Simulated assay, not measured.
Amino acid sequence: MKRILFTALVCAAASGAFAQSKADSTKTTSDSTQKKGFKISFGHNEDRKEFSINRHRDTTIHQHSKAPGFSFGLTFARFDIGLATLVDNGSFTLSPNNQFLRYRSWKTSNVGFDVFQFGYRFTSGFKIYLSGGFDWTHIRLRDNITILPNEPVLTYRQDNIDYEKNRFSSSYLRIPLSFDFRSKEDSRGKRFHFVAGPDIGLLLNGRVKQISEENGKQKFNDDYHFTKLRYGAFARIGYGGAGLFAKYYFNDMFENSPAQKGLKNFSFGFMFGF
Rank of each mutant, 00 (worst) to 15 (best):
I147T: 04
A67F: 11
G69K: 13
E151S: 12
F79E: 01
K165C: 03
Q158A: 09
F113R: 11
F72K: 11
T93H: 07
I128M: 12
P149T: 01
S187I: 09
N98H: 13
R104S: 05
S91K: 14
N205I: 05
F118E: 03
R174P: 02
Q99E: 11
F179A: 14
L154M: 11
K209S: 09
G132D: 00
I81S: 09
T93Y: 01
R142V: 10
F181V: 05
E185T: 14
L202M: 15
S71H: 15
D180H: 15
W136C: 02
A67C: 04
G132R: 10
T75N: 10
T75C: 11
D135K: 12
K190P: 09
S109A: 06
R157H: 09
F70W: 11
H138R: 15
W106N: 12
F126M: 01
G133M: 10
F126R: 05
I128C: 10
R104K: 13
L86T: 00
G197E: 09
G125L: 06
T93Q: 13
F181P: 01
N89D: 08
K184Y: 07
V115I: 14
P96D: 15
P176W: 10
L130T: 12
L86Q: 03
R142N: 13
S95F: 06
S124W: 01
I145C: 08
E164L: 07
G132W: 08
F72Y: 14
H138A: 08
A67I: 05
Y120N: 07
Q210V: 03
K66G: 01
S124G: 13
Y172C: 03
T146P: 02
K184D: 08
P176T: 07
S178G: 02
G82E: 04
L173T: 12
N166C: 03
T85Y: 14
K209Y: 08
F72N: 12
F116P: 05
N97S: 14
T155I: 01
Y120M: 03
D180R: 06
F192Q: 01
S171E: 07
V115K: 05
R142M: 09
S171G: 11
T155E: 08
V87R: 00
I81P: 02
S170G: 07
V115M: 12
F134S: 11
K165W: 08
F116T: 08
K165D: 09
G133P: 14
Y103T: 03
L177N: 05
N89P: 03
V111F: 10
G82D: 04
E185K: 14
T146I: 13
